[in-house]
Amino acid sequence: MADPIRLVLADDQALVRGALAALLDIESDLTVVGEAGRGDEVLAVVERTGPDVVLLDIDMPGLDGIAVAAELHRTRPEVRILMVTTFGRPGYLRRAMDAGAAGFIVKDTPARKLADAVRRVHLGLRLIDPALAAESRTHGASPFTAREREVLSAAAAGGSTAAIAERLHLSEGAVRNHLSAAIGKTSTTTRAAAVREAERFGWL
């Protein structure tokens, strides 16, 4: 009999992490070898436990799941990455796959499908939630340049145009221009509305 597929679970909600571990450990060919509650703990857990597949949440303290996926893909390319998240936003899907994730499913996926997703990803296949894949084809690609995204992210954190300019080492005029472009691309009228729209699609 083949060795079970070794898993690491990363989710900042202990109850969710525990539930996932219990569901997956029921499967005879899967075993959870490590857990992390923060994004900046994942790499150390992976180094210590040597998993085959890492299940990553997106919204975690320390480091978000997409940044973790990119670093994991760079340093441990043999480890397969499955994003398991509450946030089924099309922009997150595109960014996660660009970061090196092999799969992306939402947390309300039935246990049997989750286990099957782990097996498929382990085999080297790609797996994407079908509804999210369809939505991603319509809304997935971010319309922003890298600088527009940076400025809009800074705006999301709050602060005046002058404060954003100082933080990003830009002129106030450049900040206003980037915010204006972002507002236009989201078909909104204020920077607050542009931030909300960008967050809704997972572009920030």
Score class of each variant (00 low, 15 high):
99 A>V: 08
117 A>D: 02
97 M>R: 06
112 R>G: 05
30 L>N: 02
100 G>C: 04
81 I>C: 02
153 S>V: 00
137 R>D: 12
85 T>H: 01
121 V>M: 02
28 S>Y: 01
96 A>Y: 09
144 F>N: 01
203 W>M: 03
151 V>T: 01
160 S>G: 08
196 R>C: 06
57 D>E: 13
83 M>P: 01
11 D>N: 14
95 R>V: 01
189 T>D: 14
82 L>D: 03
196 R>K: 13
189 T>H: 14
63 L>M: 15
56 L>A: 06
171 S>L: 11
119 R>P: 00
156 A>V: 02
186 T>G: 01
179 L>F: 06
156 A>F: 00
73 H>V: 01
58 I>K: 13
144 F>I: 07
110 P>S: 10
136 S>M: 11
41 E>R: 09
24 L>F: 07
111 A>F: 08
158 G>Q: 03
66 I>M: 12
154 A>N: 13
152 L>R: 05
13 Q>K: 12
185 K>D: 07
164 I>H: 03
194 A>H: 02
105 I>L: 15
189 T>G: 05
117 A>Q: 02
9 L>R: 12
163 A>N: 04
190 T>S: 14
49 T>W: 07
118 V>R: 10
78 E>P: 00
65 G>Q: 07
195 V>H: 06
5 I>H: 04
189 T>E: 14
21 A>E: 15
198 A>E: 01
147 R>D: 05
155 A>D: 02
53 V>Y: 00
23 L>K: 13
188 T>F: 12
17 R>N: 12
194 A>F: 02
202 G>R: 09
112 R>L: 13
31 T>E: 13
102 A>T: 00
181 A>F: 04
37 G>R: 07
7 L>D: 05
169 H>C: 04
37 G>Q: 11
89 R>V: 07
158 G>C: 02
194 A>M: 04
127 L>T: 11
152 L>M: 09
119 R>A: 05
50 G>P: 06
193 A>D: 14
155 A>E: 06
85 T>R: 03
101 A>N: 07
180 S>I: 00
147 R>W: 02
157 A>C: 09
97 M>L: 15
83 M>L: 13
140 G>I: 02
31 T>Q: 13
44 A>L: 12
145 T>K: 08
43 L>A: 09
137 R>S: 11
66 I>K: 12
48 R>M: 09
190 T>Y: 07
34 G>R: 04
164 I>K: 05
184 G>P: 08
181 A>C: 06
37 G>L: 11
6 R>T: 10
15 L>F: 15
8 V>T: 11
95 R>E: 11
151 V>M: 07
3 D>V: 08
203 W>C: 01
47 E>P: 08
151 V>I: 07
77 P>I: 05
6 R>N: 08
56 L>M: 06
73 H>G: 10
9 L>F: 12
76 R>F: 11
7 L>N: 06
74 R>V: 04
67 A>S: 14
191 R>C: 03
106 V>H: 04
152 L>P: 03
114 L>Q: 09
125 L>Q: 15
166 E>M: 02
121 V>Y: 01
149 R>L: 09
